[in-house]
Design a binder for these strands. Structure first.
Lengths: 213, 213
DNA sequence: GCTCCCCTCAGTGTATACATAGATGCGAAA
DNA sequence: TTTCGCATCTATGTATACACTGAGGGGAGC
């Protein structure tokens, strides 16, 4: 792997997983020593992180990990809602019916995924991610997919703001199932509405300190 | 101005104004010679352009100006519609009534701006830009504004795909006036609907080879 | 004559040296 | 004692040298 790519991936992971909390100073010389590469690829990585909004230039000198708080979450969800509702509408028009029926079946059955001893909820989040991927693919819009991709980075960070809550995750799985079913049925209006409902529930639980996938 | 900033601004302008058409190879050594800076700031500029989608890595080696065609325009407008409709709704809720009433007045009077001998339609596009800025500010959503900002770069490129059409511009001004009025009235539903109508008209005229601001 | 392999070269990837600007701390003066 | 100014220093901005990879062309073999 290229050194610049490695530096970027490492820093991005560290920021998203809160190993580098907001406000952390990203000094080029220190990072190049820690990551074992020279300053040039580190600079490239910092530029990419800044473009994504994960880092910010600090008063014209230096770079710091960008802050994210519950104040920002409402704005983030407003954008998310706009993008995901539209994606769901487009997906409902162009979808492969069988794909979303299968996702619907799996999501209805997701309760089992949450009863086992998987503390990271890995299998659940993977299924939710598959729904996102399927919607992006069915929507067939490169620009929309790109906008959603850059948005999801921030959403992963936000997820760490609060603890997972099994009962909320089960509700969320059901809501995801509603979305998948509406898309399978080719009903754009219902798909958009189900997405709106899901995001509103997620946001409220998140602001209450509950779980919000 | 910093060399990297200068290189970025120059290349960005050249790409947006079609002086560097899609497919143009952006070679680091050639650019550093042409721009009078070393390869380091050129690399920084190319990285930023790639992140914005104005340039693309070519088969793992080199960078080329990204293509944009009428095939992409529909996708671009789909994303634009999702973002601008939501922005209009938010603006309608939080707006300063007087600001948008004033914009409405100016837009209703925009016919005069188009009758004079301004071939670049500078004064008209400036007014349209003021409406965009006012909506972004009233919406009060940093993430949404950022998404719209990165989208508008591509829209400027698209504008060059077709010639300006005075009669379409006059219609567009009226549509903009409708949007401003709905926002001034605090009616989110109408603001969103007016935006949808405006974008649909713009897209259809663009695809017919007419003007589309 | 065609195809495959090797050599060359061009251009990117990385490292490092040097320039420069902003910040910080210390000292002096009011 | 406090404030202002200067010096120093640290971290970034830029340039350049070197390494390496991938592509393209030419030659040889089948």
């Amino acid at each position: 792997m290229r050194a610049g790519e490695k530096a970027y991936a490492t820093l991005r992971g560290d920021i998203v997983d809160w190993r580098l909390p907001p406000g952390t100073v990203l000094a080029e010389v220190e990072l190049s020593a820690r990551l074992g590469v020279s300053r040039t690829p580190v600079r490239e990585a910092l530029a990419r992180l800044t473009a994504e909004g994960l880092a910010e230039p600090q008063s014209g000198r230096g770079t710091v990990v960008s802050g994210i708080s519950l104040d920002h979450v409402e704005e983030l969800f407003e954008l998310r809602s706009a993008l995901e509702c539209r994606a769901a509408e487009l997906a409902a028009r162009n979808r492969d019916r069988e794909v979303f029926l299968e996702l619907h079946r799996q999501l209805c059955d997701a309760g089992r995924l949450l009863t086992d001893q998987d503390p990271t909820r890995h299998s659940y989040y993977r299924l939710a991610g598959e729904l996102d991927t399927a919607i992006d693919a069915a929507a067939g819009n490169h620009y929309l997919a790109q906008a959603l991709k850059s948005l999801r980075v921030h959403l992963v960070r936000v997820r760490r703001l609060s603890k997972d809550n099994p009962s909320r995750l089960r509700e969320a799985a059901r809501e995801h199932g509603d979305i998948a079913l509406a898309i399978a049925n080719g009903n754009a209006t219902v798909a958009s509405a189900a997405t709106t409902v899901h995001l509103d529930n997620s946001l409220r639980h998140l602001l209450q300190g509950g779980a919000t996938p």
